[in-house]
């Protein structure tokens, strides 16, 4: 997975900035270190309690299907518990948090489970902070706030990697749709057809025009059919894109026939005052093909032996 171009996923430098924004300072690091002995003492019990809790809900239980996974996750949680109070929050820590976020996203763990798990941890930890005879109120407050800050930093990284992953899926799909939605096919010697599905907006127009012009030259086609059966409505911007495309085709010496003009589209075009009088239009691709074949002096006949 490529992280360098994401608008959601921070890099390590941004993360340092995020720490400053949160006012996460050396003082917080010192407070967190004070918790470390308790982390060592209670990690096992906390992690056991957490997983007992998670196993009570079908939503989370399904991620903990077998003993092996469960044990592996428990070990990872213990390690995280140690890391959280280790006092080391450098690049290594940062990278491990990102990895955790991506792993959670990949297995499909809902962010709400991830977030509420922290809340459950806090329930277990807070009594240990405030019930500790070694901490005066000021220290307890400091420890609590420092813990809150580091958890906030962790959550931000994990949630960002969730969003980043979704963002990647969306941009991949957008590209796929763009590729898919504008095929140009040769349907006869000298005739190419381009069925448009969906609205023709500026991004797609450019791609569509390029493909159509290339296909016309490649197949040496004097006629191109642009089928708009799959276009839900045509506004003036779409019409302009169509007219631009038609003009570009004319420059290549070929001719466009617009097919699939539905009655509804015809009515709105008239209402909009768009003049397509210089362009051959037909209600169906079949009737458009007939016009194309006539232009090429091709006659299609029934097989007399049939």
């Amino acid at each position: 997975m490529n992280h360098s171009h994401s608008k959601y996923l921070s890099n390590f430098k941004n993360w340092a900035e995020q720490k400053r924004f949160l006012d996460f300072t050396e003082k917080d690091v010192e407070f967190l270190k004070k918790l470390h002995p308790f982390a060592i003492e209670y990690a096992d019990s906390f992690v056991d309690q957490l997983y007992e809790h998670l196993l009570q809900f079908p939503d989370t239980k399904r991620f903990l299907s077998d003993e092996k996974t469960l044990n592996r996750l428990k070990l990872a949680q213990k390690a995280y518990f140690m890391d959280l109070t280790s006092g080391e929050y450098g690049e290594e820590y940062y990278q491990s948090r990102i990895k955790v976020g991506i792993a959670h996203q990949r297995i499909g763990l809902p962010p709400r489970v991830y977030m509420s798990t922290y809340c459950y941890y806090m329930q277990l930890i807070i009594p240990k902070i405030y019930g500790n005879p070694m901490f005066d109120v000021e220290t307890a407050n400091g420890v609590f706030l420092a813990l809150h800050k580091i958890i906030n930093l962790d959550q931000e990284l994990a949630i960002s990697s969730y969003i980043h992953a979704i963002d990647e899926v969306i941009s991949r799909q957008t590209e796929e749709i763009l590729e898919m939605s504008t095929p140009v096919i040769q349907i006869w010697d000298g005739v190419v057809a381009a069925p448009i599905i969906g609205m023709l907006d500026s991004g797609r127009t450019q791609q569509f025009m390029e493909r159509l012009l290339e296909a016309i030259v490649e197949t040496n086609s004097p006629v191109a059919l642009i089928d708009i059966t799959g276009v839900p409505q045509i506004d003036t911007a779409t019409a302009q894109h169509l007219i631009d495309t038609i003009n570009a085709v004319k420059l290549l010496g070929s001719q466009v026939i617009i097919t699939g003009v539905r009655p509804v589209i015809a009515q709105t075009l008239v209402h909009l005052g768009i003049d397509l009088s210089g362009i051959i239009t037909r209600p169906t691709m079949a009737s458009g093909l007939k016009v194309a074949l006539d232009k090429l002096n091709i006659k299609v006949m029934d097989n007399p032996r049939a």
């Binding site: 609205m199 839900p232 409505q233 045509i234 506004d235 003036t236 911007a237 779409t238 009655p263 509804v264 589209i265 009515q267 709105t268 209402h271 909009l272």
Partner: peptide, 27 residues
């Protein structure tokens, strides 16, 4: 466009009117 297509269709506008309305929304 999608939103208004849904709203207008569900409200009971006919196909032609829905297309007119949605085209106006687009503009």
């Amino acid at each position: 466009r999608k939103l208004i297509r849904n709203v207008a269709t569900t409200a009971g506008f006919g196909m032609t009117d829905v297309t007119r309305i949605v085209t106006a929304v687009s503009e």
